[in-house]
Write a protein that binds this DNA or RNA. Sequence first.
DNA 1: GTAACATATGAACAGTTGTTCAATTGTTTG
DNA 2: CAAACAATTGAACAACTGTTCATATGTTAC
Lengths: 120, 120
Amino acid sequence: MKPRHAPYTTHGTVLHRRQVEDARRAIHAPDVLQGLSQTFKMLGDETRLKICLVLARQELCVSDIAGLVGMSESAVSHQLRIMKAMRLVAYRREGKMTYYMLDDDHIEDLIRLGARHVAE
Amino acid sequence: MKPRHAPYTTHGTVLHRRQVEDARRAIHAPDVLQGLSQTFKMLGDETRLKICLVLARQELCVSDIAGLVGMSESAVSHQLRIMKAMRLVAYRREGKMTYYMLDDDHIEDLIRLGARHVAE
DNA sequence: GTAACATATGAACAGTTGTTCAATTGTTTG
DNA sequence: CAAACAATTGAACAACTGTTCATATGTTAC
């Protein structure tokens, strides 16, 4: 059985020149890479993921979000602050309450695609 | 200015009945939710994200992956173990080397969609 | 056999993360 | 005004994460 690759150097250096050169092109620019991982990390927490889901179609006040995601209002408020900083959610104050809403069209698509992946 | 919502109860209970009922339907089943956040969390780490990118088109040995993503071989090996456990990568041994490759079509789509999002 | 190498693995560690709790702010209502 | 309520904030804390370092495993070449 003949080898599919041709290794040509030693430790610390590139072992498979052609493959490595091709692969290098696949890596995005540092800032894109950072934004990407930040976005995914955002959705990597179940609480935030649920918040995104419930806020996708309508605005909701903090208490209702808390009830829906099964977390304390404080915990939700902390998460919303992060999501607000990332410009993922918009908010609107009305009297005692603050209504939050998802302010990013792409997120829903991302979750939908992810869900299709999970469903195998 | 008339209120857009009609609050009707107090603390701990639902404040906006209709919105909450609609929102509740948007939350996926617990196992789907968990799978989703796990997948996103996976991509939420820059090292793993880069590994996915470089392994999308061709297989590579651990040393070359390490060189490409700028991490020690040990660090990469640890991450590959996790990714292997998640059935995200497949591997093939050939002599001294182990060649890894992305074993999940959806991941690339997910990253591509994410990248489009980052680019605004 | 030994030496060199590629990879894997375990323990330890620092850094980060998400929640809780208590206190605070700001608003509405009586 | 005070009481009730919605939301926010900061400190503290436990849990988790990713890396490093040292060591181990397994393969190839001499």
